[in-house]
Design a protein around this nucleic acid. Sequence first.
DNA 1: AAGATTACCTTGGTCGGCCAATTAATGCGT
DNA 2: ACGCATTAATTGGCCGACCAAGGTAATCTT
Lengths: 166, 166
Amino acid sequence: MTSEDPACTQYSRLPSAAACGPFSHAVSRVARLHRIAAGRLLRAIGLYPGQEFLMMHLWDAGATRQSELIKLLELDPSTVTKMLQRLEQAGYVRRSPDPKDRRASLVESTEDGFVLHERVKAAWSELEEQTLTGLDPAEQAELARLLGKVEANLCRTAGDEAGCGK
Amino acid sequence: MTSEDPACTQYSRLPSAAACGPFSHAVSRVARLHRIAAGRLLRAIGLYPGQEFLMMHLWDAGATRQSELIKLLELDPSTVTKMLQRLEQAGYVRRSPDPKDRRASLVESTEDGFVLHERVKAAWSELEEQTLTGLDPAEQAELARLLGKVEANLCRTAGDEAGCGK
DNA sequence: AAGATTACCTTGGTCGGCCAATTAATGCGT
DNA sequence: ACGCATTAATTGGCCGACCAAGGTAATCTT
């Protein structure tokens, strides 16, 4: 293990990226690391990053219309379709046609799916702890506040074209 | 300032995700929105999100060994390979065998690639502005500091297994 | 010098995510 | 009632990103 390039936190010799948009750069890096951490934790319980959100909604709300999931997760319809196909094949999810609307389909967690609930909660707690280690409550609150502002910013600029605003 | 969260984030009726890991959830959302914003800006100039980092390094440092790019970008080797294949086919990048090491290959930006430089810088400035709108300098500094801590956290937990800490 | 190890890159597979275009069902307007 | 727009979901294509395996070249070991 050579410690040649502590690539994680060296802003010393960053490329133009840092000069152009240090925050965007930081956000990208944190996002990637966070995703990796989530992926590692979720893999152990048989899910891929992204799927846990969908399952959480299902655990939370029971049978849900697919279009509702799309709105809730703010994802592309095709993304949800494929995710559901995989989750269904994995046995964590069941889809049935909505009797009220024959073009819609209702999604719900299977028994196997519910089994994951506790493990996913544990994994997320672990992830949360990994993320926030060393941040005192005041810092956490400030981070939450600032992330909220950034999210609102990005959401607004994204919203004028495609549906972010629920 | 409280949970008046406009449109995008209704923390009021969030699923278990928020209860389990509000920060992880926020990070995921910000990451996704940020990526979307970047994608929208980059698309207009012929790049996909992620490629701009690679090009920036090339513009910055000239001909670079592929393995160096992998270390710099902290990406999987196969990711870089495929990205380069696409960038090469798009005409933005040129690869040549390294005379010093016949298994390595040197990557450099083409003329067409350099043309993108200014536009990418502009796009990133725009992205940075979109991200940080409404944050005063003190908030920006605090956000940078906190993101740095989070990054270090995630980097550390990622490092004990695979290649973040090099 | 021959063999084992490591480094560099590629291929093939999987997933999340997007867009564009399609089909099917519902609803609305006249 | 009929036609037309809207909504629900799917398919196919593309890209970023990961892992697992593989092949070749350089280097270290013996």
